[in-house]
Design a protein around this nucleic acid. Structure first.
Length: 456
DNA sequence: GATGAGCGG
């Protein structure tokens, strides 16, 4: 049961809450069901380990489920983190939405909506609101209950840490703009569990940065300087826009210019004008890039994001090129011998026999090809082929995330699901009574994920 | 102090 949230005017610290009376509940759940596919639910925020059968079990507790599908990446089969659950009647779907929304499955609260295949309303961002300074005790359900008096909510969520602790802000997507406006005007600045909340329209971060009120800055970053450009040159050029407090051209230890620098203005308006005017201008045939200087932490964050994106792109590019081998014959005891066996299929970019601490082959290994096509041919030709005295096992090597999700999925089937008290008594016993399987084997930590040494 | 993710067969 979610904690009761009291809304109180901030000034008086008492008085009547922004009541349901006087607020027209624009768009009821029934109206929403009529708008969307009334028997089909979209289930989002799924942990990657959640599978069809597990969802079926959960949703069958509260209604007659026709079908369930966890959507997966077509290549990797990795869960995309959402699913569809189709019911035999609108009433069952409505009940499932009401009873199971925000129920944790494998430790993560699910978020349920009516299925709506048309993405236009999602993209527009209309009727979406942002709430901050939320008390940590306010969870998804409490947020939902607090805001649902203003109209039908399509989706709602409190941002959380990985641990599940509230980050103190959240989102409510209403069906109708009118409801969003009503919620903003009635709740902005109110006390919710003794904290004065901000409630306003949701504005995407990028859009917010371009509007007035964006942080003023004094420090300007300039790059793509010619190697001969000095501090004095910068002073002269930037000085036209107003008084400057400091200028620096960054240099190597030997004094060679790194071709970028910083100019700090006394007045932020001058800094803004300098950026506006000088960005993209050419000096000594070099096109300057001029912008607000980032703080060190901002810069580090950006570099980190870029780095991670590159890693991901590289992984995508190599998709399907790496083969995992097991049941390797003892005679294949070094990387070169392994390479010979696969050499005919194409260019091999790396090759490894896995060994234990004593250097003895573990009977497994990896062969990576330049092209996915060659890898695929090699897989088909070599899987099950007798090498020495054993049939070789060949499969596409799984990436770390993929492998982790698979192991987690196996593991999670063995443990009880977390259900709300209202449906818990109807749950079947888990783990199922499989004779000879000691259930304690599956409790505690799952086995460590195998780490592919070649893909890191 | 804080501004999301998101629709198949």
């Amino acid at each position: 049961m979610a904690a009761q949230v009291q809304a109180v005017p901030a000034a008086e610290g008492g008085g009547a809450p922004p009541q349901a009376n006087g607020v027209v509940a624009a768009g009821s759940a029934a109206a929403a069901a009529a708008t969307f596919q009334a028997t089909s639910l979209y289930v989002g925020d799924l942990d990657v380990s959640v599978q069809d059968a597990q969802l079926f079990d959960v949703f069958s507790q509260v209604g007659s489920v026709v079908s369930v599908r966890v959507c997966r990446d077509v290549n990797t089969r990795l869960s995309l983190g959402y699913a569809y659950v189709n019911f035999s009647s609108p009433a069952d779907a409505a009940r499932a939405l009401e009873m199971l929304n925000f129920t944790p499955i494998n430790g993560k609260p699910i978020r349920i909506m009516y299925s709506n295949r048309d993405p236009s309303s999602r993209k527009s961002g209309a009727a979406n609101i942002f709430i901050k300074n939320l008390d940590k005790s306010i969870d998804n359900k409490a947020l939902y209950d607090t805001f649902s008096v203003f109209g039908n909510i399509l989706s709602c969520k409190v941002a959380t840490e990985m641990s599940g602790e509230s980050k103190g802000y959240g989102f409510v997507q209403f069906e109708l703009e009118e409801a969003a406006q009503n919620a903003i005007s009635k709740l902005n600045g109110m006390l919710l569990n003794d904290k004065k909340v901000y409630v306003g329209p949701f504005v995407r971060k990028q859009e917010r940065e371009n509007v007035s009120g964006n942080p003023k800055f004094n420090n300007v970053y300039v790059k793509n300087l010619s190697e001969s450009t000095t501090e004095d040159n910068l002073k002269e050029i930037f000085g036209k826009f107003g008084p400057i407090t400091s200028v620096v051209v960054m240099r190597e230890g030997d004094g060679k210019s790194r071709c970028f620098g910083f100019v700090n203005f006394e007045n932020p308006d001058d800094a803004a004008r300098a950026v506006e005017d000088l960005n993209g201008k050419k000096f000594d045939d070099k096109e300057w890039y001029v912008c607000r200087a980032q703080k060190k932490s901002e810069r580090e964050m950006e570099l980190k994001e870029k780095f991670e994106k590159n890693i991901k792109e590289a992984a995508d590019k190599n998709q399907g090129t790496n083969l995992y081998l097991k049941n390797l014959d003892d005679s294949i005891d070094d990387d070169e011998k392994l390479k010979e066996i696969f050499a005919d299929f194409g260019t091999i970019t790396s090759c490894k026999v896995m060994r234990d601490l004593n250097g003895v082959s573990k009977g497994s290994g990896f062969v990576a090809f330049k092209s996915a096509e060659d890898a695929s041919r090699a897989l088909v030709a070599m899987n099950g082929k007798m090498i020495g005295s054993k049939p070789l096992y060949v499969a596409l090597a799984q990436r770390k995330e993929e492998r982790r999700a698979r192991l987690q999925a196996q593991f999670s089937q063995m443990r009880p699901m977390v259900m709300p008290p209202s449906v818990a008594p109807r749950m079947p016993m888990y783990p199922p009574g499989v004779p000879g399987v000691g259930q304690q084997l599956f409790y505690g930590q799952p086995p460590p994920a195998f780490v592919n040494p070649q893909l890191g």
